[in-house]
């Protein structure tokens, strides 16, 4: 057995999945396996099974109290992400404060308004300046703006602001996808909880790279407890063209 077919052998990929979780899969083999994991849900699933089997072992270590600064840093990072100075107003706080800056406002929102037909102004409050990489207004039925998506390259955070609470049947979540071309497979960006006005998805470097070159963002409705998958199962509910600042 050679090449791609090798990885269709369950004995082989399950053994590799175990060594991936243990950490003994290293170097080029580890990177190759990560690529396969991203492409093939059954390999990702095998890894998850091993994570569930081995990671309860973390409970067996003796406790060690982390220094207070770690929590302070976490709290600060979260407050920044939420754009909430008080830290409690995660939902209510806006995140488009940087749009208030006159030069940026004049250029970008003009582009947005023209290119995307955005007529509704977004709530504007103070927020630190992100390094903008992507911006997209996602429209639902009747070209109604339903969500705004922005990618901050510096922090590798994709923020999703829902303009109104989506009407979902039963236990569903929203899932955000980046689309590079009509023929290419959508790239999964992350889950957007329907109850949150704003969600911040922090991506790994690899995840960020995979999204590079996105021409559209789309949101599908997916069953809440489905296994994490690299492919959408639900129909596209919102979508919009993406302006790419990279």
């Amino acid at each position: 057995m050679s090449g791609v077919k090798r990885y269709q052998n369950p004995e082989l990929y399950e053994a590799l999945a175990a060594e991936y979780v243990l950490g003994t899969l290293t170097g080029a083999a580890r990177r190759r396996f990560e690529r396969l994991m991203a492409e093939r849900p059954y390999i990702r699933h095998a890894v998850e099974i091993w994570e569930q089997k081995l990671n309860p072992m973390a409970e067996l270590v003796p406790e060690a109290e982390p220094p207070v600064r770690v929590w302070n840093n976490i709290r600060q990072a979260i407050a920044q992400d939420a754009g909430a100075a008080t830290g409690r107003e995660r939902q209510g706080a806006g995140w488009l404060g940087w749009l208030r800056r006159p030069a940026f406002w004049q250029t970008t929102t003009a582009i947005l308004a023209v290119a995307l037909g955005l007529k509704t102004l977004l709530p504007l409050v103070a927020d630190p300046m992100p390094t903008l990489a992507y911006i997209s207004v996602l429209e639902g039925e009747g070209d109604k703006p339903m969500a705004v998506t922005m990618g901050d390259r510096k922090r590798r955070v994709v923020s999703v602001r829902l303009m109104e609470k989506p009407k979902l049947a039963g236990e569903h979540v929203l899932e955000l996808w980046a689309i590079k071309s009509p023929d290419s497979k959508p790239v999964r960006v992350g889950i957007v909880p329907p109850d949150r006005k704003t969600t911040h998805l922090r991506l790994s470097e690899q995840e960020w790279k995979k999204m590079k070159g996105a021409k559209q963002f789309a949101i599908t409705f997916e069953p809440k407890n489905r296994a994490e998958s690299e492919e959408p199962t639900g129909p596209i509910m919102y979508k919009g063209k993406c302006i790419d600042f990279i």
């Binding site: 569930q52 990671n55 973390a58 409970e59 979540v173 889950i191 969600t199 911040h200 998805l201 922090r202």
Partner: peptide, 19 residues
């Protein structure tokens, strides 16, 4: 920070929260 950002993807049917 990742736990906070991805808490919505935790599925209690598949693993314990600690795991």
């Amino acid at each position: 920070i990742k736990i906070w950002n991805n808490a919505a993807s935790f599925n209690p049917e598949r693993a314990s929260a600690m795991t």
